[in-house]
């Protein structure tokens, strides 16, 4: 059996032939497989978009929620049962558009979850409008005169919001991407895997060829991801595009900071035997 195949379901992906999502799908299944995670202890929370449609095709517990909102669902799943591995599959619209507030807050809180963003710089499922990461001037159905806004820089945002594991992959390099996802899942705290993922149908500018000419592997250039300042410099590059791990910094996780959860996951706490009468004195 091919690596990761056991995580296939009875459903096949519905993406366009050649879509960058396939590389992420493969890498996610490989990473879960290579880490030896069990199906039933793994939860993937999906957003809405082409990326979210992966929900039908990965055999784990899955929550396919609302556009822009997978992060709050994932955080709460982790808080309710921190014995689970919680991964989020979301698009650039989900994460950097509709759900930007959740993105920043989740990193500030250092929730122990892994966010994988399909960053294709265009809205695919809604048939080709601009995305928060589209280059300035990008012409699309919603911006025929070109985008006026500056693009969101996910790595810089993550650095400023205190994320402890910040990485970027490319769906054309599944070997590297699998490693990034694995390390992200192993990291104790919030991990970001932003993924360059060409949309072969609606983004005729940022194509596989376009990326192949620009991407390079930080690791191969001897980069050590221990400096916030260096990471910020790398994140600002525009001619060459760095992939790999930009920054790692461990700090206490959100669930690890709650004394209520020190004795074990919330969901195993017995509900019998609660007696609220012991606080009635405060209301007398």
């Amino acid at each position: 059996m091919l690596k990761g195949q056991q995580f296939n379901t009875t459903h096949s992906p519905t993406w366009c032939p050649g879509c960058g999502d396939f590389g992420i799908w493969t890498s996610l299944k490989n990473a879960i497989d290579e880490l030896g995670l069990e199906y039933h202890n793994t939860v993937v929370v999906y957003g809405i978009g082409c990326s979210g449609n992966m929900a039908n095709t990965v055999k784990t517990y899955a929550f396919h929620g609302l556009h822009g909102r997978p992060l709050p669902v994932a955080e709460a799943v982790k808080l309710a049962n921190h014995g689970l591995h919680v991964i989020i599959i979301a698009g650039d619209g989900d994460t950097y558009g509709e759900g930007m507030n959740h993105f920043l807050t989740s990193m500030r809180g250092n929730h122990d979850i892994t966010l994988i963003v399909h960053d294709n710089q265009v809205y695919g499922l809604t048939t080709g409008q601009t995305a928060p990461t589209s280059e300035k001037g990008y012409e699309s159905k919603s911006t025929p005169q070109g985008v006026i806004e500056e693009p969101v820089n996910p790595v810089l945002l993550a650095l400023s919001a205190g994320a402890g594991f910040i990485s970027r992959g490319f769906s054309g390099n599944t070997v590297q991407l699998t490693e990034l996802i694995k390390k992200g899942i192993q990291h104790k705290g919030f991990s970001l895997v932003d993924v360059f993922q060409p949309c072969v149908t609606f983004n005729k500018h940022n194509t596989f060829q376009w990326f192949f000419r620009r991407v390079y592997d930080l690791d191969k250039e001897g980069y050590v991801p221990n400096s916030w300042e260096k990471a910020a410099e790398k994140a600002r590059e525009t001619e060459r595009l760095a992939t790999g791990i930009f920054y790692i910094h461990e700090r206490p996780t959100y669930h690890g900071s709650l004394p209520q959860l020190a004795k074990g996951p919330l969901v195993v706490r017995p509900l019998a035997g609660i007696d609220v009468r012991k606080v009635f004195k405060d209301f007398i």
């Binding site: 709050p72 669902v73 309710a80 049962n81 689970l84």
Partner: peptide, 20 residues
């Protein structure tokens, strides 16, 4: 939470995972 949209989605996520 950071806003009410998050509040509602968190409540749903925690409940799905088994919390009241």
């Amino acid at each position: 939470a950071e806003d009410e949209i998050s509040v509602a989605n968190m409540a749903i996520g925690a409940s799905w995972a088994g919390a009241r």
